[in-house]
Design a protein around this nucleic acid. Structure first.
Lengths: 225, 225
DNA sequence: ATAAAGCTTAAATTTAGCTTAAAATTATGA
DNA sequence: TCATAATTTTAAGCTAAATTTAAGCTTTAT
């Protein structure tokens, strides 16, 4: 899961980044509205955390522009001010939720989970066929036997399974799993697909990951016939 | 838009109903958790507003049961308590947002609008007849069965469907799909039209692509007769 | 009947993806 | 801290799939 934080106070931004990375999010930071909007429009984030009072372009303007561009990415705004007008204004501008500073990290996490829940439609039972994964503990089970994966292997498998029954394009994979935004002709994805397939095969989950040539990969939920 | 309010204090329930009906919502009220859950499960609401402290069945339990039944209806919860645990607990139980009592009606409205916004987003998938294509994932469906296309096949079909009900000339096709701008006497188009027709025929979408002799091809939206 | 346009097939060419090994980087433990 | 192990990335050869070419065949319009 990839987040963008748009926040000008380096202290808060850094604190959030550290905390969220511990929760296995991939986190980018922008320190002003303009560069934040740029990042938001040119990348595929799963959620934006936007401070309301930032230089170059206000949080509300960032919000409006993002929506104007047609993006439905969830936006959580941070505000020090607690006036009603602000909240209403912000939500109407296209934000999904807000949280007042100072806030507790736990509540922020809960609110992030709410916004991301829609993405993991089949709630938190991340599985495909006999394979199930637990993002909280980074464990993977094929039936009853556990499969040991490295962090990158896990991140890739998690992304594929979260997007079960959808084609994951190479560019999206490289963005979400590797956090690489520019075009590159690396073959890491291929290599990691090979790693994963080898381990899955050994655990009896052969050909779970299918190749869509010229596009990317897909994990299909086997039909129950 | 149809809302259900589950709230035991008649004063608050009535105030909300009146205010929301003025905003043209259709509003039902349940005065305890049990009858509220019943209503929620047997009707199609666009949003639920649930008080946390209600008799017969707590708000959190209503929330859980609704989610357990597979419904994704947005749930807004009302709480008098303002402890962190409550909020986190509620959001994790499946609520989408919460609002503290006492609240201002304006803020409630704003939060309702946020939750309903997702419903109104137009889905702009490209389709012709029973065939639909998804450029984001490069997937093609004929009804429910997926058709696997190579990248060039997909690009050609996408171009034809984007220009549905218009004749696509050979020169335009070669420009847009193959990026060839000079005149050439290649027969790739013919070959790919054959490939596409064969796959579409196999999936039950025969003669979707029609030839306009001397000019090019056209995909027609079948009239609904 | 004939010529032009389009269709189909098979073979040649090109490209994308797979695999492996080795290099570079990062984490771990004495 | 340094050495060692684990992980990640790069690079190259190989294979299979996708694309293009080319030739013969079929349909259509005059």
């Amino acid at each position: 899961m990839r987040l963008l934080i748009i926040e000008d106070e380096p202290g808060i931004a850094g604190f959030l980044k550290d905390g969220l990375e511990e929760e296995y999010f991939a986190v980018d930071i922008a320190y002003d509205g303009k560069s934040g909007l740029d990042l938001a429009l040119t990348n595929e984030y799963d959620l934006l955390i936007v401070d309301w009072m930032i230089p170059a372009l206000s949080g509300i303007e960032v919000c409006r522009q993002v929506r104007k561009a047609g993006s439905l990415v969830p936006i959580l705004f941070l505000t020090a001010k607690d006036t009603l007008e602000d909240v209403v204004f912000g939500l109407d501008a296209g934000a999904n939720d807000y949280i007042k500073k100072p806030f507790e990290f736990e509540e922020l996490l809960a609110r992030i989970r709410v916004q991301l829940r829609a993405k993991n439609k089949a709630d938190d039972s991340l599985s495909a066929g006999s394979l199930s994964i637990n993002p909280a503990t980074h464990q993977v089970f094929a039936g009853l036997n556990e499969i040991t994966l490295t962090p990158k292997e896990f991140a890739l498998l998690e992304y594929l399974i979260r997007n079960k029954d959808r084609v994951c394009t190479r560019s999206r994979i490289i963005e979400h799993v590797w956090d690489i935004h520019f075009d590159s002709d690396t073959s890491v994805i291929d290599v990691y697909i090979t790693f994963l397939r080898r381990k899955l095969e050994a655990a009896g989950c052969g050909n779970l990951i299918q190749t869509i040539r010229g596009v990317g990969y897909i994990v299909r939920q086997p039909s129950m016939v």
